[in-house]
Amino acid sequence: MFWIISSTVVAACMATVMIFVRLRAAKKPASVKKIILPPLFMSTGAFMFLFPVFRVGWGQVAEAVLVGVIFSIFLIRTSKFEVREENIYLKPSKAFVFILFGLLILRIILKLIIGQTIAFGEMSGMFFLLAFGMIFTWRLAMLRQYLQLEKTL
């Protein structure tokens, strides 16, 4: 129970930091590098699967990634770019904060439900895959939108 509570607190802190990072990012021009680096850095977390305690079956991998892709739809819908002064900026969305906290609450509920039937290590692996699937899909959609807008400049 300690691990579930502590990992939930860490997730809440990460979500809060993400909101502030997103708000600051809207003040600076976007770039391909700024879009693709977060999932690239996050991918290093896959090293956790070197340890047997975190390994999950292929069915669980598919489920977690699919849920992440579904969750990413909300982020994709609130991530829009705009052109200002010959640069492309990420347009701030008021809904983003609510969506991020909504996803966090949903994730906590899922963790509490699943945590009673799945070992903590497996659950950690599944939630990493969920988060990676969500961020990777979201950033891929952002990259596509950015490149299309860049062609018009």
Rank of each mutant, 00 (worst) to 15 (best):
L40G: 14
V32P: 02
S124V: 02
G125W: 06
V67S: 05
I108D: 04
F132D: 09
V69H: 13
N87C: 09
I108H: 08
R24S: 12
R24G: 12
K80L: 10
K28G: 02
M123W: 02
L50P: 06
I118M: 09
M134L: 12
I5A: 10
L140W: 05
G121I: 00
E82I: 08
P29V: 03
F41G: 12
F49S: 07
F128K: 01
L153F: 08
R24D: 13
L103G: 11
E63Y: 15
L106W: 15
Y89M: 01
V21G: 06
R24W: 13
S93D: 03
Q145H: 04
E63P: 15
A62N: 11
E85D: 14
K28I: 05
L110Q: 10
I36S: 04
A12T: 08
M142T: 00
F2G: 02
Q60T: 15
I114M: 11
L130V: 07
Q148V: 02
K33G: 10
S43M: 14
M14Q: 08
K111P: 04
R144C: 09
I113Y: 06
I36P: 01
I70Y: 07
G57M: 07
I118T: 06
M1R: 11
R22G: 12
I118Y: 02
L106D: 14
V69A: 12
I109G: 03
S72C: 05
A26C: 09
E150H: 03
K28E: 10
P29C: 02
T16G: 15
V17N: 10
P29I: 03
M14K: 05
R77F: 14
V83D: 01
L37P: 05
L103I: 08
I113A: 03
V21W: 11
L153V: 10
K33V: 15
L40Q: 13
L100G: 07
F54K: 00
I105S: 15
A95N: 11
W58D: 11
R139S: 04
G115A: 10
A26Y: 07
K151F: 05
V32I: 03
L104S: 07
T8N: 03
S7M: 01
F47S: 12
V53M: 04
S7R: 00
F128I: 10
G121V: 00
L110S: 12
W58F: 13
A25Y: 06
M142S: 01
L153R: 14
G125S: 08
L100N: 11
I108G: 06
A95C: 07
G59I: 14
E86W: 15
A119W: 01
L149Y: 01
I113G: 00
A46S: 13
R84K: 15
F127V: 00
P39V: 10
T44E: 14
P29L: 03
T152A: 06
F101Y: 11
A141C: 09
W138M: 06
G125A: 06
L50H: 12
I105M: 15
M134V: 11
F71M: 14
F120E: 00
L100D: 09
K151R: 06
M134E: 14
T78K: 10
F20K: 08
V67P: 03
W138R: 08
G57P: 05
I88G: 00
R139F: 05
S6T: 07
K91W: 04
S93N: 02
P38K: 06
L147E: 03
S72L: 05
L37H: 07
I109V: 14
